[in-house]
Amino acid sequence: MTMLLEHGGCLQLAARQFGIPAADWLDLSTGINPNGWPVPPVPAECWLRLPEEQDELLPAARAYYGNSSLLAVAGSQAAIQTLPRLRPQSRVGVLHPAYAEHAGAWQRAGHQVTALQVHALESALPALDVLILINPNNPTGCRWPIAQLSDWHGRLQQRGGWLIVDEAFIDTTPELSLSPLPVKPGLIVLRSLGKFFGLAGIRCGFVIAETAILQRLAAELGPWAISHPARYAAARALKDTQWQRETAIRLKLQSRRLTDLLSENGWPPSGGCDLFQWIETEYAGQLHRILAEQAILTRLFSRPASVRLGLPKDEPAWRRLQHALAHPGVLALQAVKSG
């Protein structure tokens, strides 16, 4: 049996493990915007009729992403799991640490997967058929400029290779995005409404790539990949430019606030982006547990030992995190770390 990879957001599991009701938790484990786009009431026909491709979703997505060559998928996860089936056995480089589903999907499909540190990407490129990056990276927040990614894509494409860039966390830094660039053979960009828009539950994302890849991907995924209610909500979120502008500003301010709060309490982030901060420390497991005992859920990583914290939703949540970081157990751990 294939083992499922661990993810943030496992609130029910944490509730059982620590004996604290799920309703009492502050969940900072996902990196999802806690104040997502406000979904309006969904018309009854969305529940009663099959979704249709000729609705508002694709025009809205083409305008938002600045590209007409795209395919709607059930969250970028659907593409992550399916793309490995579109290539013969390949040599695949995946950044580590990074979102583990990429490596897992290519391994399960029988490809040769190599985990790469940031400093090894350039030297490893000649031996790869596929390079997969998350920009900004999850969980480290590492970023790559367009010029660097374009160079790597060009070198891979010369021998029929692919560059896959997962832009799940890029919405607040559109200057880094490859999405608006003209599509090229072997360049595949993944986008999601789950993080910036906070609409993880609707399972809607997009693949931007050349038509040949989109057609093969669509054939693998089959009809009605996105539910009718999800298409209705996603189209309206993508068209709400005022909310998008205001949210991008707010998230940047909140990210700075989280960085400052962690730093002031002796846990300066090692990296992050506008939706989360990441702390690499050998005491990650202890910090995760002490916060969990106070019903604050963070995302724990074992390699390297680290924790990721998303943004608190409101002022009571910010005060709660601040109080938790001043807990005697956290202070004692911080003293050991510093001493």
Results as ranks from 00 to 15, higher is better:
4 L>K: 13
5 L>A: 09
5 L>W: 10
9 G>P: 10
15 A>S: 15
18 F>D: 13
19 G>A: 12
19 G>M: 10
20 I>R: 03
20 I>N: 11
21 P>C: 12
26 L>P: 09
26 L>G: 13
33 N>A: 06
36 G>P: 13
37 W>N: 09
37 W>Q: 11
43 P>F: 12
44 A>F: 04
45 E>L: 09
47 W>L: 15
49 R>I: 00
57 L>F: 12
57 L>G: 10
60 A>N: 12
62 R>W: 06
63 A>C: 08
66 G>I: 04
68 S>H: 13
70 L>K: 08
71 L>V: 07
72 A>M: 08
73 V>K: 11
75 G>A: 11
76 S>C: 07
76 S>F: 05
80 I>V: 15
84 P>A: 14
86 L>V: 10
91 R>N: 09
92 V>S: 07
94 V>Q: 10
98 A>Q: 14
103 A>Y: 00
106 W>H: 04
109 A>Q: 08
110 G>S: 02
116 L>K: 03
120 A>C: 07
121 L>C: 06
124 A>R: 02
130 V>F: 03
132 I>T: 04
133 L>A: 03
133 L>Q: 04
136 P>T: 06
139 P>G: 04
139 P>L: 02
140 T>F: 03
142 C>N: 03
147 A>M: 00
149 L>G: 02
157 Q>P: 00
164 I>P: 00
164 I>Q: 01
165 V>K: 05
166 D>F: 01
168 A>W: 00
170 I>S: 13
170 I>P: 01
174 P>Q: 14
182 P>Y: 07
184 K>L: 15
184 K>G: 08
185 P>R: 10
189 V>C: 12
189 V>N: 01
192 S>T: 14
192 S>W: 04
193 L>S: 03
195 K>G: 00
197 F>A: 13
198 G>K: 06
200 A>L: 10
201 G>M: 03
203 R>F: 02
204 C>F: 03
204 C>M: 11
205 G>V: 05
217 L>F: 06
232 Y>P: 12
236 R>I: 04
240 D>Y: 01
240 D>W: 03
242 Q>F: 04
242 Q>I: 09
244 Q>A: 12
245 R>L: 13
248 A>S: 15
250 R>Y: 00
252 K>E: 14
255 S>N: 09
257 R>H: 14
258 L>G: 09
258 L>K: 04
260 D>N: 11
260 D>W: 11
261 L>F: 05
261 L>P: 05
264 E>L: 13
264 E>C: 12
266 G>N: 11
268 P>E: 06
269 P>S: 12
273 C>Y: 03
273 C>R: 02
274 D>V: 00
276 F>N: 02
276 F>S: 13
278 W>C: 09
282 E>N: 11
285 G>H: 06
286 Q>V: 07
291 L>Y: 05
292 A>L: 09
294 Q>T: 00
294 Q>G: 01
295 A>P: 10
299 R>L: 07
300 L>N: 02
302 S>Q: 14
302 S>P: 00
307 V>L: 13
308 R>F: 03
312 P>Q: 12
312 P>L: 13
316 P>S: 08
317 A>I: 05
317 A>T: 04
318 W>D: 12
322 Q>L: 01
325 L>M: 08
326 A>F: 00
327 H>G: 02
330 V>I: 14
333 L>D: 04
336 V>M: 02
